[in-house]
Simulated scan of single mutants.
Amino acid sequence: MTHLTLYTTLGCHLCEQLEALLTLLHDGDYRLERVEISEDEALLARYGVRIPVLVDAAGEELDRGFEPTRLAAWLAARGQLDEAAWARLREETGATPPGTARGAVMRDGRRYLG
């Protein structure tokens, strides 16, 4: 089972969007721990303008995971992407696979212009 942490705050619609995508795209079981950042000054300073931030068990962070291509690339790098679900989502939304958008290259869940 995969253990993930989501830094979030009450009423964060982008956090809800990331959770919905994670449910769809994650291959296998996972446990998601939600951490409310508004109750801790240090967390608020670190994540306040970045939420939602998804973190794996190794401490690797993903900003903007509500963007399907970013979340798919991050999960794929960990061997946790449901490829069939990702293919269906791309067909439905017209999303491009990680690394193919407008000459960009995806590495470690980040897009670099080519």
Rank of each mutant, 00 (worst) to 15 (best):
V55H: 08
R111C: 02
A57T: 03
D27H: 12
L25K: 06
E91S: 13
E91C: 02
L54Q: 10
V49F: 07
S38R: 11
V35D: 13
A95C: 05
R107C: 02
L89H: 15
H3R: 15
L24T: 14
F66K: 01
L21Y: 07
A45C: 04
A84E: 15
L44Q: 10
G59H: 10
G79E: 06
G94N: 05
W74G: 08
H3N: 14
E19W: 00
L75A: 03
L43W: 14
G11F: 05
A104R: 14
S38C: 04
D63P: 00
A77G: 14
T9V: 07
G114D: 08
T69E: 12
V105L: 10
T69W: 07
R31C: 03
V55C: 08
R34M: 11
T5G: 01
R64C: 10
F66S: 06
D27M: 09
H26Y: 02
T93G: 06
L71Y: 06
R31M: 12
T96M: 09
Q80R: 14
L54A: 06
A76D: 15
E36Y: 07
L62C: 01
T9K: 13
H26K: 02
G94K: 05
A45T: 06
R107D: 02
M1S: 11
V105N: 00
E60L: 03
E33G: 02
G103E: 02
P68D: 10
G94Q: 05
T93S: 13
G94F: 06
A42R: 11
E91Y: 01
G59A: 08
T96K: 09
R34Q: 15
E67I: 13
P68W: 08
A101C: 01
V35A: 07
R46W: 02
T5S: 08
D56G: 09
A57S: 13
Q17I: 01
A58H: 12
L21Q: 05
A87E: 13
G59Y: 10
T5M: 01
P98G: 07
L89W: 14
L75G: 08
L71Q: 04
A76Q: 13
L89Q: 11
V55M: 12
P52A: 09
L62G: 01
G65L: 12
T100V: 08
L22G: 04
T100D: 15
T23A: 15
L4R: 10
A72N: 06
L24W: 09
I37K: 01
A95P: 01
L43Y: 10
G94M: 05
A104P: 00
A20G: 12
L44I: 00
E39C: 03
G59T: 10
G109F: 06
E16N: 12
L113E: 11
D27S: 14
C15Y: 04
T8C: 05
L113P: 03
E36Q: 14
T2Y: 03
R46A: 14
G103A: 02
P97K: 02
P97W: 00
G59L: 07
D40G: 03
E67N: 06
F66Q: 13
E67S: 03
H13D: 07
T100Y: 06
L21V: 11
R46P: 00
A42Q: 14
L62E: 03
E33S: 09
D63G: 07
L32A: 12
D27Q: 15
P98T: 03
Q80I: 01
T8A: 13
G109L: 08
A73V: 00
H13K: 12
P97Y: 00
L71W: 05
P68S: 15
P98C: 05
A95L: 09
S38L: 13
V35Q: 15
